[in-house]
Design a protein around this nucleic acid. Structure first.
Lengths: 117, 117
DNA sequence: TAAATAGTTGAACAATCGTTCAACTATATT
DNA sequence: AATATAGTTGAACGATTGTTCAACTATTTA
């Protein structure tokens, strides 16, 4: 497939494109990256993650803190769990969630740096 | 509004919730954060940003590299522009895009660290 | 064992998103 | 001036998303 059939352009800078092509990751890596960042792309989920930086909390705590239903929180926690961003422990009727590792805090802090400039 | 009316829970851990409440940011900050991360939450946009880590490129270059139409690329570049993640310069018919600052690379690298474990 | 509470789940809904398409602007070339 | 190319734009489309609702499981308490 020529460049022309792809983008209808005749002035593609081949050296820059070829260089970039070599440094590109596999398709799966970009999908994994975007799937990860999708978890930070919703205010509710960011609030949950930010709240859990302070201490572990059960679903009720988060629902109370964020003024949302347990169901809504639980759905989001499931997504965060699937991406290994939070872990949990059961104690009686309660399920206590906490951050899986400190990458979460690092990612949030980096975002805060960007928006505060 | 009581905890009960919010989440129908009676076992909210008040001290943990109150402590978290104090450390929470303003609603706007969470919206801004999630809007920022939304830019990294799509494979096409991440590819564009990652490619621009190598060198500046025009719309044709990116379209050729990612095997997409100029229109699709242009729409995504507009979104990245609005969030100040890329900057551009015009030269004749071409518009050359590049990363606005190195936060972008830092954010992508941090994501890669997380998925490689 | 029955009732109450914490949490999860799947379907449904509106809202948002990403790409396509066609039409457009702007610059360069003849 | 006419043509060609680079890039942008808005509407439209299907696909994905976040919350709600109702029904469910599991644990605790009476």
């Amino acid at each position: 497939m020529t460049d022309e059939t792809v983008c209808q352009c005749e002035t593609v800078h081949e050296s820059a494109v070829n260089q970039a092509k070599e440094s590109m990751l596999a398709e799966d890596d970009y999908v994994a990256l975007s799937t990860l960042y999708k978890m930070f792309a919703d205010p509710t989920r960011i609030k949950v993650l930010h709240a859990l930086e302070q201490s572990e909390m059960c679903v009720c705590d988060l629902a109370s803190l964020l003024v949302m239903t347990k169901s809504a929180i639980s759905h989001q926690l499931k997504a965060l769990r699937l991406l290994d961003l939070v872990k949990f422990r059961k104690e009686g009727q309660n399920v206590y969630y906490s951050l899986a590792d400190d990458h979460v805090k690092q990612i949030i802090d980096m975002g805060l740096e960007h928006i505060n400039e």
